[in-house]
């Protein structure tokens, strides 16, 4: 008791150790909550984005059908650009397993814009059909994911 404290030295040591452990624990909890928070944000956003994606894919298919029957390709190009916007935003939100399909479609869109001008109209058209096929698959895939999320 020569230091003027009422407590034993070992009690003081113990409390210091506890506070250090507490600090570490706080950091862990903070990190976990942050993760859960972002996870929830993704879950809350995904159904909305899937709906958007689906309607965009549908209008792309409609535009392609029009291209096929009337030879009008402006709408299809517009639709593909809009689709790219949605996909780029989606890329940051989906899990790793679905990311692959998102990247496939984005890759197809990008390869399109780089050599679009040197393709003949026919080639460009069938490329667009393949692209919309992949986009449709993606929309179906994410639709399933949305159903999975509902039960977890």
């Amino acid at each position: 008791m020569e230091t003027g404290s009422y407590l034993y030295q070992w009690v003081v040591d113990l409390s210091v150790i506890c506070s250090i452990l507490g600090l570490i624990w706080t950091a862990v909890v903070w990190w976990e909550t942050k993760k859960i928070g972002s996870d929830f944000l993704v879950r809350a956003r995904i159904p909305d984005m899937v709906k958007e994606l689906k309607s965009e894919v549908k209008s792309l298919i409609a535009a392609l059908a029009e291209w096929e029957s009337h030879g009008e390709h402006v709408k299809a190009s517009e639709s593909i650009s809009a689709l790219k916007g949605i996909l780029l935003s989606l890329r940051l939100k989906v899990s790793k397993s679905d990311l692959k399909q998102v990247e496939v479609v984005i890759g197809m869109i990008e390869s399109r814009s780089s050599f679009h001008s040197c393709l003949s109209s026919d080639e460009s058209k069938s490329h667009a059909w393949r692209l919309s096929q992949e986009a449709n698959t993606l929309a179906v895939l994410l639709g399933q994911l949305e159903k999975d999320n509902r039960w977890t």
Binding site: K54, S55, V57, K58, I61, A62, A65, N136, V140, G143
Partner: peptide
């Protein structure tokens, strides 16, 4: 029965 974009279209 999966209502996909292609089916709707």
């Amino acid at each position: 029965r999966k209502s996909s974009a292609a089916l709707q279209q």
